[in-house]
Design a protein around this nucleic acid. Structure first.
Lengths: 118, 118
DNA sequence: TCAATAATTAAAGGACTATTGAAATATGAA
DNA sequence: TTCATATTTCAATAGTCCTTTAATTATTGA
């Protein structure tokens, strides 16, 4: 993740519909969700969800693949992780105390680490 | 950090000059940097840096305080940490594997955790 | 092939954002 | 007070982004 990618990722996440799409796709997991399902859940028009999905796809935060008549979108976990790292590396280079609270969240996600910290 | 704050934070970070301001302020630490110093480092006009600083201040990612003739800007570590947590909590609710790589960065920032993990 | 479904693309508008240059405000020093 | 410094504010312009509607593409089944 370079600065160029981070900028487009931040731009992608700075719009309400798109941020909600990401949240839904992250929770949906590898099976993803169809464009129509997202439009229905978020109560926006098909063309509008399509517009935002294209923005997110262009940023690399999501991926798409056709499945019959539907197009299934999935969160790109590497890109999302990369963006988090980008933010954290910046703060690490200066003042690690920014990262400390994030580390707490990180440990709650990684059981193996939690065990070691007992 | 709620979704409303996250949206304005992402918008604030989605512009090159503003992202660079944040990076400079994070590295600068609690002493911060004057508006003029930032303008000089980033080679933008005083009025332009002022515009972007106001955007960042409005988002809560930075703070300001006058010191003699200069206005000193500092990174708001709590907001930055909160934004990182916001991104990570979303992924935790779904698929923790996003957080795992971030946790590696987090440990490099928190020496105490690194010791425990030995 | 024809109709239905799922989604995208295109065009037009209105709204917001960024940049520039000039004028205004605030502070400190002579 | 007057001048210089540091920064902000204002107004105008250009550019970008979001939404809407209508038209188009792709796929499936009768």
């Amino acid at each position: 993740m370079n600065q160029r990618q981070a900028l487009t990722s931040f731009a992608a996440l700075s719009q309400e519909t798109r941020l909600q799409i990401i949240r839904l796709l992250v929770v949906a997991g590898p099976e993803g969700l169809a464009a129509g399902a997202l439009a229905e859940k978020l109560e926006v028009s098909p063309s509008n969800i399509s517009f935002h999905l294209k923005e997110l796809e262009h940023s690399g935060l999501i991926g798409a693949q056709r499945q019959s008549r539907s197009i299934i979108y999935t969160a790109n976990y590497e890109s999302l992780g990369g963006l988090i790292r980008f933010l954290m590396e910046d703060c690490c280079s200066g003042h690690p105390e920014i990262c400390a609270p994030a580390a707490v969240v990180a440990t709650c996600c990684t059981p193996k680490m939690e065990e070691k910290l007992q």
